[in-house]
Design a protein around this nucleic acid. Structure first.
Length: 419
DNA sequence: TCTGGGGTCCTAGGACCC
DNA sequence: TCTGGGGTCCTAGGACCC
């Protein structure tokens, strides 16, 4: 007699902007944007002018001349979002947080305690508004994906319940871009075949969709459109890669600049890995290359090592080798506009293990984790990590390089995004 | 000597999400 | 208007093993 599951998707509205309006009442009701050179979040008042996140500030100001830019209170975003998540935890242990401001809840086992899905969603919205002061939209359905679509439809500050049995008629008139996984490319491919709504998508043959969109995407779209997607809510879950990137406009890639930026990025990534007690075998770099007056292209290079690494200097050395190799392959693209380092194939690694691993085997290749210098590297990292644990990140800089002249995004924001 | 199929890992690139 | 930073997942080819 087990009925269908009851899944909620709870999503804070225009989160960063809503927090700013909560902290400063004079901003309430006004079009505001969080960010500096680009819009990181826009209030609903600003969205009505067409302002959207990711938009350059100049463009946003043209759309909305009265737009106010406000600095981000990054620690507050994290603290308030955590309070909201704690409210969700009161209704079920099955909470899957998928970003700072949204989560899935499986409340199937909770309905006998708190009431049906719509009642629970109502209580969540009331509590979040009363206790934290933020608007939150909730979608209720029998599957995760449909709950997410419902919460998007509910925005702003709304609640949408899709009753079991009404899924198809709910989805049919909605545009395909509301489906999770449909971005500009997929939307355009579908539009070229006359498919604009989820109903039209559901009416398309699965094999035909696979040939149009590819095996995985085609299958997924077919399942989503006809609500045959039944992934379960999975609490917890650790990241499978750790990375950092830095854009610096149109700058000529001197060897000094590459070294400095890669050192800084390796420091960020290595520090986070060590704090998490993890190391990774695969180091990937991304280089965005640009030519003046033309578009940019990005290339990636990766290398998989025998042993997991987390040492800043080792990561920096591997990354530098990869970047130089990538640049050598593209001599006609002289300018570098972004560098990124990512580490994947992650495994749990204790500090002791890392130390042993780097001292056990000597090697003349400095990019290998078994380098003879490994012990010294571990000692340096360990000292830096210890100071930072006490006094914060800024207490110790890597190689005395702050790179403030290149970074356009404050470090606080990076740390927020790391969560 | 050449033929076949399956599985896993690695690498580069692309689409998408918040 | 191609701008930020941190992620996930998929594809396709090649190497290698059985």
């Amino acid at each position: 007699m087990a009925g269908p599951p009851t899944i909620l998707h709870a999503d804070l509205d225009a989160f960063y902007a809503s927090v700013e309006q909560l902290l400063d009442p004079s901003l309430r009701g006004l079009p505001i944007a969080v960010g500096g050179g680009i819009v990181l979040a826009a209030s609903y008042e600003a969205k009505r002018f067409g302002v959207a996140s990711g938009m350059p500030a100049s463009c946003a100001r043209q759309l909305c001349p009265t737009l106010r830019f406000v600095g981000g209170h990054f620690a507050e975003y994290q603290r308030l979002a955590d309070l909201v998540m704690a409210v969700l935890d009161d209704f079920t242990p099955l909470v899957q947080r998928i970003s700072i401001d949204e989560a899935f809840l499986d409340v199937t086992g909770s309905v006998h305690l708190f009431g049906d899905g719509g009642t629970i969603a109502d209580r969540i919205r009331t509590r979040v508004r009363a206790e934290i002061g933020l608007p939150i939209s909730v979608g209720v359905a029998t599957t995760k994906h449909l709950a997410k679509v419902a919460s998007q439809v509910a925005k702003p500050d709304g609640l949408v319940v899709v009753e079991p049995g009404t899924e198809a008629e709910f989805l049919a008139p909605l545009p395909v871009h509301l489906l999770w996984g449909v971005g500009p490319v997929t939307e355009a491919k579908l539009a070229s075949r006359g498919i604009a709504t989820i109903g039209q998508l559901a009416g398309s043959e699965e094999g035909w969709l696979r040939s149009l969109l590819g095996q995985a995407v085609g299958t997924k779209m077919s399942h989503l459109a006809s609500n045959r997607d039944h992934r379960s809510v999975k609490p917890g879950g650790r990241a499978s890669s750790v990375g950092a990137q830095s854009g610096f406009g149109r700058t000529l890639a001197t060897a000094e600049l590459l070294r400095a930026v890669l050192g800084h990025l390796a420091d960020r990534v290595g520090g986070r890995l060590r704090v998490a007690g993890r190391g990774g075998r695969t180091v990937t770099v991304r280089v965005r290359l640009a030519k003046l007056g033309t578009s940019s292209r990005s290339i990636t290079r990766s290398r998989t090592l025998d042993q997991p690494v987390a040492a800043t200097r080792t990561l920096a050395d591997v990354a530098e080798t990869l970047v130089l190799g990538a640049l050598a392959d593209h001599p006609d693209w002289p300018e570098v506009s972004l560098l990124a380092i990512s580490v994947s194939n992650l495994v749990a690694v204790s500090g002791i293990q890392l130390e042993l691993e780097t001292t056990d085997r000597a090697s003349s290749d400095p990019t290998r984790p078994g380098s003879a210098t490994g012990s010294a590297r571990w000692a340096v990292d360990h000292s830096v990590d210890a100071v930072r644990a006490k006094f914060g990140r800024a207490a110790v800089g890597y190689a005395g390089v702050t790179l403030s002249e290149y970074g356009s995004v404050p470090d606080e924001f990076r740390e927020l995004a790391e969560r």
